[in-house]
């Protein structure tokens, strides 16, 4: 077998990588492996796999998803006012340009994010400075966990207190605060 990189010398080094569940393999000769530093330490992985990047992965993933074409069609490419990125740029490099991109390209991004992450509902940490409902939802989640624990431990007085707090938060959340 010849080296996948130079296609001249016999391949003696086997490299295998998995990104987002997709595995690629490369057989390299010692020289190519060496030129790429000791296991790509210096040059980084992208050089070892010119055809293999996150951008390409997204592009092939995006092709299978609905609502993409309007945003990719070259002529009327919308630019993010925050950083100048187009959706076609994103398709190519697999990276957004700034926080506003997520608002500007939300519509075509949505199916991609669902596909990658299995949904679009953040339940983790919320920055303290952030207003909005996320903080409330986050606190609510925690209180519910605590309530379950309290009930399991038969700490009914604490459970009643927690239930009141949860009710209060739920009302505030419904009030759209």
């Amino acid at each position: 077998m010849l080296c996948d990189n130079c296609k001249k010398n016999p391949a003696t080094v086997y490299v295998r990588r998995t990104v987002n569940g997709v595995t690629t393999e490369a057989h390299l000769c010692e020289q190519c492996a060496h030129e790429q530093g000791e296991w790509n330490l210096v040059m980084g992985p992208s050089l070892a796999f010119p055809d293999f990047s996150l951008g390409n992965l997204f592009a092939s993933l995006l092709d299978q998803l609905p609502g993409q074409t309007a945003f990719v069609a070259g002529g009327r490419a919308q630019r993010c006012p925050g950083c100048g990125l187009t959706y076609a740029d994103f398709r190519e490099q697999g990276r957004l340009g700034c926080a506003r991109c997520y608002t500007v390209f939300r519509q075509p991004l949505d199916p991609l994010i669902r596909r990658l992450q299995g949904g679009v509902r953040h339940v983790g940490k919320v920055p303290r400075r952030h207003g909005g409902t996320a903080r409330l939802r986050h606190d609510l989640e925690h209180l519910r966990q605590e309530l379950n624990e309290a009930v399991a431990k038969e700490e009914f007085e604490r459970a009643a207190k927690l239930r009141d707090e949860i009710k209060l938060l739920e009302e505030r959340l419904r009030g759209g605060q």
């Binding site: 996150l54 997520y102 953040h122």
Partner: peptide
């Protein structure tokens, strides 16, 4: 930060 998407990162 976004209510639905959480902390916003360069890569989704």
């Amino acid at each position: 930060f976004d209510d639905d998407l959480g902390f916003l990162t360069a890569c989704p």
